[in-house]
Design a protein around this nucleic acid. Structure first.
Lengths: 217, 217
DNA sequence: ATACTGCACGACCGGTCGTACTATTTAATG
DNA sequence: CATTAAATAGTACGACCGGTCGTGCAGTAT
């Protein structure tokens, strides 16, 4: 007999599983994906070690699940809110604002999950690194899409190098995260915000029109 | 009686100690400072585990020694060569060029040692994080000094925000390192170089005079 | 020759890791 | 109510971890 979609056992399992990956992502943002241990995770959640393990079958699978959970949280906190803004430079600005809030407010206790995880795995080939690289690509493509949209509607000149602009924006965001974490210094976010605004106004066809729209909220 | 400075035993001990920390820094750049294990290190160097351990007394001390070794290597590859250039924007440019070479040529097999180590420890208070934060401060102050020198000799306007410029330069460098490591994509260094050059010319009092001096080597 | 010093060694400690295998509990179904 | 399947618990394993200890040995000083 196959599983019913409302099977209480499965629902309970799913809830546990979700609780595990959510906590795993939090821990990994501080201790790293490798430092994340199944026993520690089980202790925190007051479940048995084997209960945790059974959900994933291997540590690597747990790490991949944690990355998936982190992507969901990232989308929820950074991407979705910005989608309310019109496509183009304004939405791009909102994305960076959302990102700064996501990092500054420590949605993950260790700061940006992907900053930490990528630094940890960028020199270790395998499925974990591939998953992280894919997440990064998605984020970069999202930003690039907005720059292209800005070009399409005349907000930005057609010869603007979108990839270069996106590179620079991401650089400001990630570095603000790193500095603020290492030195407990939130002024890095102010610097990043200033740099981003300058870059955006620089890229705009009509800076005087865009300027007032780039407001903090 | 105390030890003579030319004691053969001490010299030999110093040599092995140096070999250990140098290898430790290499491994840590890939596996992380926590992933670095004394046993693994001993196996690689074909010395006994306790022989390695005796030099440091604790794992944390070994980690701190590895950071010290990394600082030395960093200075040797990035700072010292740039000191040949005249103080100011040109030396600043040479410093960034040296940094890109240091990262691109994988002086550490895992890319920039401090990028990896900082991301690993930025959320874990303790002596290791303090040491890393200190190293970062030194690097930032070095760059800031050059910006101030540029202002003092009129290369840059007196109202230039040095800290902001340094923040942006570091952002480009670190992000290039991260992207190139994660995606095996050296084009990030080209982007960083372009962004830095633009930023420097932007900051210069006389960009047309500075431009020709910012040559690749 | 003798006493001393410092490095490196092998054996071993308790503890934790990821993982496997075997109950037991819980809930849906016939 | 009996059966079945899924979630969870319990237990044990081999490997490795950081760290301790006593010892051997080579270089130095007297």
């Amino acid at each position: 007999m196959s599983t019913s979609p409302t099977d209480g056992r499965v629902r309970k399992g799913d809830r546990t599983r979700q609780a595990i990956v959510r906590r795993a992502a939090d821990i990994a943002s501080v201790e790293g994906l490798e430092g994340l241990s199944i026993g520690r995770l089980a202790g925190d959640l007051e479940i048995s070690k084997s209960g945790v393990f059974a959900h994933f079958g291997s540590k690597e699978e747990l790490q991949l699940a944690a990355i998936g959970a982190a992507v969901d949280i990232y989308i929820e906190h950074v991407v979705t809110p910005a989608l309310a803004a019109p496509a183009g430079l304004i939405r791009l600005w909102r994305l960076t604002e959302g990102w700064i809030a996501y990092s500054r407010d420590r949605v993950f206790p260790g700061g940006c999950f992907f900053f930490n995880a990528s630094a940890e795995f960028d020199a270790r080939p395998g499925r974990v690194r591939d998953a992280l690289a894919g997440a990064w690509r998605g984020w970069r493509e999202l930003l690039t899409t907005e720059v292209e949209a800005a070009k399409a509607i005349g907000e930005a000149p057609a010869d603007l190098d979108a990839a270069q602009l996106v590179f620079e924006l991401i650089a400001f965001l990630e570095t603000a995260n790193g500095i603020s974490m290492l030195h407990d210094d939130t002024s890095a976010y102010t610097r990043a915000g200033a740099a981003i605004r300058t870059r955006l106004l620089d890229a705009a066809t009509d800076p005087t029109a865009l300027g007032p729209l780039l407001t903090d909220r």
